[in-house]
Simulated assay, not measured.
Amino acid sequence: MLLQPIAPESDDRVEHKTAVLNGCSYHYLYGVPPGGQFKATVFLIHGWPDLSLGWRYQIAMLLDEGFRVVAPDLMGFGGTDAPKVPPNSINLYSVKRASDDIAELAKIVGARTIILGGHDWGGWVVWRAAQRYPELISHVFSVCTPYSPPREEYLSTEDLVKALPQFAYQLHLASGEVEKSVKDEQSIRQFLQGMYGGKGPNGEVVFDPNQGVFVEHLPLIGEGGLLHGKVLDYYVKEYSRHGIHSTLNWYRTGKANWEEDLALLDKKTISIPSLFIGATHDSVLKPEMSKNMQAFMPQLTKKEVPASHWALTHKPEEVNSIIKAWLEQQGFGTKSSL
Rank of each mutant, 00 (worst) to 15 (best):
M1H: 13
P5L: 05
V14T: 01
V14W: 00
L21E: 01
G23Y: 14
G23E: 13
Y26C: 02
H27A: 09
Y30E: 04
Y30Q: 03
P34R: 08
P34T: 11
Q37D: 11
T41Q: 07
V42L: 10
F43Q: 09
L44Y: 05
I45M: 10
G47D: 03
G47E: 04
R56W: 05
R56K: 07
A60H: 02
L63Q: 02
D64V: 08
F67N: 00
D73G: 00
L74S: 04
M75S: 02
A82Y: 03
P87V: 07
I90T: 06
N91L: 12
Y93L: 01
S94R: 00
R97L: 03
A98G: 07
A98N: 08
D100P: 03
E104M: 09
L105D: 05
T113A: 06
H119A: 08
D120N: 07
D120C: 04
W121G: 00
V126D: 03
V126R: 00
A129D: 04
A129Q: 05
A130V: 07
P134Y: 02
I137F: 06
I137L: 06
S138Q: 10
S142F: 07
V143H: 00
C144P: 01
T145E: 07
P150Q: 08
E153W: 11
L155M: 13
D159E: 15
P165V: 14
A168H: 14
Y169D: 10
Y169V: 14
L171T: 15
A174G: 14
A174I: 11
S175D: 14
S175P: 12
G176E: 14
G176N: 15
E177N: 13
E177Q: 15
V178Q: 00
E179S: 14
E179W: 08
E185W: 01
S187C: 10
R189F: 06
Q190D: 02
F191R: 03
F191I: 09
L192H: 03
L192A: 03
Q193H: 09
G194C: 03
G197S: 11
K199Y: 04
G200Q: 00
E204C: 13
F207A: 00
N210C: 13
N210V: 13
Q211F: 15
F214S: 01
F214P: 03
E216D: 15
H217I: 10
H217C: 11
P219Y: 03
I221C: 07
E223I: 09
G225M: 00
L226C: 12
L226A: 11
G229L: 05
K230C: 12
D233V: 02
Y235Q: 04
E238Y: 08
H242T: 01
G243E: 03
G243D: 00
G243Y: 04
I244C: 08
I244N: 05
W250P: 06
R252C: 05
N257C: 10
W258V: 05
W258A: 03
E259F: 05
D261T: 06
D261G: 01
K268D: 08
I272L: 13
A279C: 14
H281R: 12
S290N: 14
S290V: 09
Q294W: 13
Q294H: 15
M297W: 04
Q299P: 03
L300A: 15
S308V: 09
W310M: 07
T313G: 12
H314Q: 10
E318R: 10
E328M: 12
Q329Y: 12
G333F: 08
K335Q: 14
L338I: 15
